[in-house]
Write a protein that binds this DNA or RNA. Structure first.
Lengths: 335, 335
DNA sequence: AACCGGATTGGCAGCGCTGCCAAACTGCGA
DNA sequence: TCGCAGTTTGGCAGCGCTGCCAATCCGGTT
């Protein structure tokens, strides 16, 4: 009865077996509820576990188990600063928690090389699956992902070829729908206000779809304002002020996302510009605040949580390779 | 020269050793750059690794290594819906990435029992450290954390006793400072508008500090409006409308956070109430948008990223047990 | 030519667990 | 009483890696 644990030594399955007076295999069977064991054995093991405060070592378990892959998934996202990605994680974890599979996360800061490094690092934990953001990766990332022998799911973007499974929506289509909406409402002198496109490729795809549709309607983008750095209301406000100083005749602005649009709305409020009478505003994402604004923001709601959930669902079973979850245009009152 | 891998079998260190024509130990030494090896050995191993596309198995590495603890940290946060927690993770990952230590995350949904389950699950991966949110945990969580033999850091809140290390600020002090500000500005008929306090204990602590300071100034809270569910601009807007319907004579409202305050601001805009002339608004957190509003929001900026960074710093070395990072009151223009 | 200290190297046990197998046990009919 | 099929059990190899140790190598000495 040596209850005092040496600080460094944690309780092992062998300890539990000795304490319960059964074999190691029996303990293992009981703990995983796998294979058959007597009621008596189950009770003795449960008691011993409680008495010893045993916490299984999943490193060892995963190593020994078949396939040798751990019951955890690796997730690489470009940023945590943009609500979109926490929302994605939210959908993911809500679905994964049920199976008590934790996420190991890596943040790439929109840097493809960093993403590659993170993928290598995450694969070294032998995850059951790898979840990436977007479809654009370095050749090295693709090679690693393919050689890793794990299910790979690319989230958010469906405009292109995926490695394995893809869950998201078409950013091009979002841009196109946004343009159609503005054109239908009679706006003609339209500008774009966005954050850094070189790093946020999906925003670039939306803009491409937007411009193409504008072109098909015989219109051209009147101006394009790109603010360096991440998207934010502050960038949106400053950007809109700069844009209007350059082109006071604009009648509508398409923003790279709702954060930028909120800043634009603030700029209009501060300058006393009527929205949408004097200037129409159109966002992207359908964030919470958009509906609470004095004039609900015209935007496109993206199925962020649902993407996370479906991505989790992809991990088990072999559903379809590409799931397009679509999006919803919210008319709002700003455009 | 059997380059074709059987799908199921991944390249192991032994394969690399054979390919490079050296011993396993040498490969291990080269890969970890630990111990001494010749330049020639280093090159041969590097070539073999590249040729085979070897990705080390950290499950095995951690199991075999001394201490048997994995180079990853477990993080439990209550939610991903509130920007605060992604910000925390942001600070954490930015500091941890340098050491290429990934985070395994668990989301408790503000449920202490769920937190306990997550702690047990995370500990089974033998993380190098465990990061929790707040100071209130079930006895089981505390017992697990203490028995886990890992460094435990509790983030955000310093109002109480921690298990091991604590990094954050005093929520009571935030509430007190906010109250002092409103009182000094001459507001007397002050109300509180918050989200569910039973689950967000830190908001409760702020309110306690707020009410106490109000009392010391001879004032009482005129009304308290609690909206069920998570904080959001929509809840803030609806809440303020309800509050004003009940008590039209209020001259200031203290919000549980900036999201709620933004909703309140929208409500004022929509109702044509002058801010702060007719009604003053005071928030909490100092989010990005607060500074971009037509009238910058009066609020308290919390060091969220810094908490994450300092928490990461706590993991290595034994700094002080409690780090109070303070906060900054932003005067703004809404109170 | 024999010697020496340090740098470099490979073999192998063992981390904690699981999967496999054979042994032991059970109840029941012959 | 014995045998049999099914259930329950424990022993042990081995997952891929690291840490330890002893063996080997190297360059310069005596």
């Amino acid at each position: 009865m040596d209850d005092i644990q040496t600080p460094g030594r944690l309780v092992t399955l062998t300890d539990v077996a000795r304490e319960a007076g059964v074999g190691e295999s029996t303990v293992s069977r009981v703990l995983r509820n796998h294979g058959s064991y007597s009621k008596r054995a189950g009770e003795r093991v449960a008691e011993a576990v409680a008495r010893l405060g045993y916490v299984p070592n999943r490193l060892a378990g995963s190593l020994a188990g078949q396939g040798a892959s751990a019951r955890l998934v690796g997730v690489v996202i470009p940023s945590l600063a943009n609500v979109v990605f926490p929302d994605l994680l939210r959908g993911l974890t809500s679905a994964l928690d049920a199976a008590s599979i934790p996420c190991v996360i890596g943040v790439s800061d929109y840097d493809p090389d960093r993403e590659e490094a993170l993928v290598a690092a995450l694969l070294s934990w032998r995850p059951a699956a790898l979840l990436l953001t977007g479809l654009e990766h370095t050749p090295g990332t693709v090679a690693l992902a393919k050689a890793g022998g794990v299910r790979v799911v690319e989230m958010i973007d469906t405009d292109g070829e995926g490695i394995d499974a893809v869950v998201g929506f078409s950013n091009r289509a979002v841009g196109a729908a946004s343009a159609r909406h503005l054109v239908a409402r009679g706006y003609r002198r339209i500008a774009y206000l966005g954050h850094d496109l070189a790093v946020d490729l999906r925003a670039g795809k939306r803009l491409a779809g937007f411009e193409q549709t504008l072109g098909e309607a015989g219109l051209t983008l009147q101006a394009k304002e790109i603010r360096l750095g991440p998207s934010s209301p502050a960038a949106g406000r400053a950007g809109l002020e700069a844009l209007l100083a350059r082109r006071p005749d604009l009648d509508a602005v398409y923003f790279s996302n709702d954060d930028m649009a909120l800043g634009g709305y603030f700029a209009c409020l501060a300058a006393g510009l009527a929205v949408p009478g004097r200037l129409a505003l159109f966002g992207f994402n359908g964030l919470d605040f958009a509906a609470a604004m004095p004039q609900p923001l015209s935007t496109v709601r993206t199925p962020r949580l649902e993407i996370g959930r479906q991505a989790a669902a992809c991990l088990t079973g072999d559903g379809p390779k590409t799931i397009d979850l679509g999006f919803e245009l919210i008319e709002g009152a700003t455009a």
